[in-house]
């Protein structure tokens, strides 16, 4: 049902949804049971003429069971939840399947910059394809990402992948994903990061190998023409007047 509202576009999206469901069911059933009990007891033992209120210590076994039995069931269910959660945690956060590609994601107030290593597969080389607020990946390939923040805390959130990773400045976060569905999905920032946090969105395009190659070639051409301006003077936009 969740995928009806939000497509599952990564290999682990289903595991996350399953976990969300397990939690929703366990907590949901308890919520209903407890509320029904609560209101039923209030109704059943409401004030009646000629019936005095009774003082109950709750020491008798049959009364204590009202606490003990649910308590024990909850403990068992808790263990179940923890096992389910750890299983998903290990699968997604503790295991890094070997990468087909590695991309760099840089967060800053208020944009996402994506660096695809280009044909040579190495980041920070001249053939890198860098884009702002638009990320292109190939379907059914495992990606490692290196996530960094330039300024404040941000959070890299791809709802369709069921992926969310905080990024604090000064640290490189590694993670992975494997897109399983082609299409265009949203990327957003999930950590309040300043005045334009709400519009710190980006586009994720998951495409087939052919489409991805075509995109890469188009961008490699762009990069070459943009390089015409690379001969610009080096003391840049951040020229400090004081040092002039």
């Amino acid at each position: 049902m969740l995928e009806h509202y939000l497509p599952r576009a990564s290999s682990f999206a289903g595991d996350i949804d399953q976990l969300v469901w397990i939690i929703a069911w366990i907590v949901g059933v308890w919520f209903v049971v407890v509320e029904v009990m609560f209101f039923w007891l209030m109704f059943r033992f409401r004030k009646k003429p000629g019936v005095p209120a009774r003082y109950i210590t709750g020491k008798e076994k049959h009364l204590k069971n009202w606490i003990n039995i649910p308590h024990n069931i909850i403990l068992v269910l808790d263990v179940l939840l923890i096992v389910a959660a750890i299983r998903v945690w290990v699968l997604i956060k503790q295991t890094m399947p070997p990468a087909d590609h590695t991309v760099k994601v840089m967060a800053q107030q208020w944009a996402w910059t994506f660096t695809d290593p280009g044909p040579d597969g190495k980041i920070d080389t001249p053939d890198d394809v860098r884009t702002t607020d638009e990320m292109h990946v190939e379907v059914n390939k495992t990606y490692h990402f290196v996530l960094e923040s330039m300024d404040v805390a941000h959070s890299f959130f791809i709802p369709a992948f069921r992926l969310k990773q905080d990024a604090d400045p000064g640290r490189a976060y590694t993670g992975w994903f494997k897109p399983t569905k082609t299409g265009t999905f949203d990327i957003s920032c999930a950590e309040i990061c300043g005045i334009a946090h709400g519009v710190m969105g980006a586009k994720l395009v998951v495409e087939t190998t052919q489409e991805h190659t075509a995109w890469m070639q188009a961008h490699a051409a762009d990069a070459a023409t943009a390089d015409a301006g690379a001969s610009a003077p080096t003391d840049s936009t951040t020229a400090q007047p004081a040092s002039q």
């Binding site: 944009a111 910059t113 519009v199 943009a226």
Partner: peptide, 21 residues
């Protein structure tokens, strides 16, 4: 995205989202 969209344009990255609002 005709201004402030270059990955290295720090100041542009701050103004661009405000234009989007």
């Amino acid at each position: 995205d005709l201004r402030g969209a270059n990955p290295d344009d720090m100041e542009g990255h701050r103004m661009r989202p405000l234009a989007r609002t």
